[in-house]
Design a protein around this nucleic acid. Structure first.
Lengths: 236, 236
DNA sequence: TCACTCATGGCACTCAGTGCACAACTGGCG
DNA sequence: CGCCAGTTGTGCACTGAGTGCCATGAGTGA
């Protein structure tokens, strides 16, 4: 409730909410593509031109709060100190997105059903998710600046975190928002942290020593182990 | 002239190529958004209606070969046997995409510059990449069906593979297609495999007997280290 | 020659999105 | 009170993507 107040210069016009409500009413009733912007503004009782004053496109009305959430995430990542563990930090950042979804379960579920069956909305959602992923990756790139392959690791870990988050989120959305979303996300993110949070190459690469330790799993293809050793030994 | 026979519904009329050529000529000359479909068909000397017969949207003309590549990838994944290692298989599948880019370096670089500065094209590219990622994830889901958290691992690994591939690909594209693209991609994919390499459950502590630890002195000859690992892994 | 198919193209239409100008309301300021 | 900004909502005309429908013309087989 109190979270819907205005902030940072963005006033809270009731018109915006009215447009979102009218849009979703029609989208759920007759489908997204069968609803024109004229239909929405007619139901909301406002002029057509006003719609595009609040939403740059018809798709934006489906994701009215992602812009704010993205700003929250970037602020959260900018606030962190250099002491906290990078992978854990981006996992916490991902939890911010989950919280936004969990704040309005019914709305989130409705939107999920909508985006699932409208290709155009799925494409739009991808661009939204991509911006989250870029925010995480940029943060990790800064933190990994000293590492060899820092940007690669940053991109991969950011993608893995987003994928894990989305996997758990969609699982929760598919269950109509029942149950606790955070536990599934915690589990998913723990998997990512177990894969990247541990001790692969970075510690060795950061402080070269006389001894190289390689941990390999039984069954892992030999050539891949060799590749890793080659990279660790400095590649020549 | 040559064997331009239709295969699986994907015909190759010269008109399609003419439209792509005309489109890119104009896109590079005056920009994507400053070029209308009418401009393209006028330059190609064909009717406007024919454009949309070959390309469902204006954006599709920028990615004329991804549909075929996606089909190749799904076929490649469907062909594999149950013996090959799943993560290695999806890495090889990703290399198919790289090969498509590397086949036409100049075209790929031009398209990269275009998509980098046109938001609409970036969004479209995301939807393309998403379909590749889904193909990989679906394959891994099948292979991981028996695992606990199989779908989670499948989604995360697919995302990591795609991110690693794209990181290396973009690095190559930024260098104007100079150098060998495959080495950068191999290196990036090796990183992903080192994090996820064929292991059922990530936590190492649960199955310590499956882990092999090798300690080597820096400067030790590589072949000697490999010999040691080979022996320890039991003829990998 | 006829019938049939198929690729092409012309035409009109819907609808998203934009630029521009105008009206209504607001809050000073003389 | 009249005058003057600034903001917000609206109406209108326009561009351009994408679609449905139908005409045309070339090729093919009988």
């Amino acid at each position: 409730m109190s979270s819907e107040k205005d902030e940072a210069g963005t006033g809270k016009p009731p018109m915006r909410d009215a447009l979102v409500a009218a849009a979703f009413h029609l989208f759920l009733e007759r489908g997204y593509e069968q609803t024109t912007v004229d239909d929405i503004v007619a139901l909301a009782g406002v002029g057509r031109r006003s719609f595009f004053r609040y939403f740059p496109s018809k798709e934006d009305v489906v994701f009215p709060d992602h812009e704010r959430c993205l700003a929250d995430m970037t602020a959260f990542l900018a606030d962190g100190s250099d002491d906290d563990e990078p992978v854990g930090r981006v996992c916490d950042a991902a939890r911010l997105v989950l919280r936004m979804y969990a704040e309005n379960p019914t709305f989130s579920v409705q939107r999920y059903r909508l985006t699932k069956q409208v290709p155009g909305l799925r494409a739009y959602e991808l661009s939204v998710v991509w911006r989250y992923e870029r925010a995480l990756a940029e943060y990790l790139r800064r933190r990994f600046a000293a590492r060899r392959d820092g940007t690669l690791q940053a991109d991969v870990i950011a993608a893995a975190v987003v994928a894990a988050h989305n996997n758990a989120l969609r699982c929760w959305l598919r269950s109509d928002g029942r149950g606790e979303a955070s536990t599934a996300v915690d589990h998913a993110l723990a998997y990512v942290q177990s894969a990247f949070g541990g001790v692969p190459v970075p510690p060795v690469a950061e402080q070269p020593e006389d001894v190289v330790v390689v941990v390999a799993r039984r069954g892992a293809p030999l050539w891949r182990v060799v590749q890793e050793i080659e990279a660790t030994l400095g590649r020549g």
